[in-house]
Design a protein around this nucleic acid. Structure first.
Lengths: 206, 206
DNA sequence: CTTGTTTACGTACAGCCTGTATGTAAAAGT
DNA sequence: ACTTTTACATACAGGCTGTACGTAAACAAG
């Protein structure tokens, strides 16, 4: 049975969003461990009671923050993937470019790439990764394997290794003095890596 | 002027090593955040006073643990690199195989790949990485660029992206139900990626 | 060998931070 | 109008880290 949105729900959602937004900026600046719940709720204009009513514990608030950031990233990447390109590999690369652009925000790097694995634990992190970034890569890899662009090989590890390279590229770019140039460097390298995975026309395969 | 090793030094080094060893197993089992200093010192048979005499804080003990694990990994990889191979790329791959074997120990994965980035922070982690794993990859990449096996391209990001893929491979292998098969899958993929980075004889380059 | 000093470690304490239990006012149901 | 539920505030307890201080053994000096 459908429940109509009541004033409680609106108020609740509002504070929830504010907590997530505040936590996002604070966690991005100083990391999960160095930001206490008291500072979060004070900045958000509520008390710890509100936080522990909305979220089971600090880690669950962090999880919500990670999901928000990941959602934003996936949105930007899918937007970049929307514009049609000729080469399917070129498509993947423009997706990678959008990913690196989204990670230019150091918040992304710190929250998603540094703290998330440690805070969420391997299982939850793996699960989240599959629902967002890894999911996109898996999809792309799957199409490239299906249309014969890539030589037949297991899709799961391929997607993970590509994502690993992409994540490291994000770290590299976010710390680079010239992010634009660093982005292009990384994309060229990734392009080369992808070339090696294509169905070899004349190249030697072991 | 040289100072001779005294009984103090021996005793000090002994407790230091025991603390590192105990912390290594405990951090590997339950992670940095979930292991208190009290449990560490009790298992090691000392008190917290000894810990805080040997290390400035808990993070510095953790740093020592990470260095120990990294040292071990580098030793195994360099051992694998010692046996001569024909193809220089083949050499890199056998190094990667040794790396994945060393990371089969879940302790490695949890300490070095999950907790270390969050606990040490980006700067110290980057620095440690360069002194150990990343250093090896950089060296390998440098030789492959120098002897013309790889097409000319910036070495620093290339090494980092390769290490990123290798680290992700380590996670994949350490979580796989059949680590041996997973290792070979990953090595095949990495081999393909490396092929794409070679000086293209007939392959198309953008 | 005795004495002063340093080293390595044990003990006790204080602060912080998380999570929980309880209270309260407004909104929702009846 | 009355009860119940929701959303949040307040107060409290436990744990954990880091530090200040105490102590006994080892080294150095005479």
């Amino acid at each position: 049975m459908e429940r109509k949105t009541t004033k409680h729900d609106l108020r609740s959602a509002a504070t929830r969003e504010r907590l997530i937004a505040v936590a996002r900026t604070l966690f991005a600046q100083r990391g999960y461990a160095d930001v206490g719940t008291e500072e979060i709720v004070q900045t958000a204009g509520v008390t710890r009671g509100a936080l522990y009513h909305q979220f089971r514990d600090k880690a669950e608030l962090f999880t919500a923050v990670v999901e928000a950031v990941e959602t934003r990233i996936v949105a930007e990447v899918t937007a970049a993937l929307a514009e049609p390109t000729t080469d399917p590999v070129e498509r993947l690369i423009s997706g990678a470019r959008a990913f690196l652009a989204a990670c230019a925000d150091p918040a992304t790097e710190r929250i998603v790439l540094r703290d998330a694995p440690a805070v969420l634990g391997a299982a939850r992190w793996q699960e989240l990764s599959e629902r967002y970034g890894l999911g996109l890569v898996q999809q792309a890899v799957h199409t490239l394997l299906a249309d014969g662009t890539f030589a037949p090989q297991p899709a799961a590890p391929l997607a993970r290794l590509l994502l690993g390279a992409l994540n490291e590229a994000a770290r590299y770019v976010s710390a680079a003095e010239d992010p634009r140039a660093a982005t292009e460097e990384c994309l060229r390298i990734i392009g080369g890596m992808l070339d090696g995975l294509r169905t070899a026309p004349g190249a030697d395969r072991r």
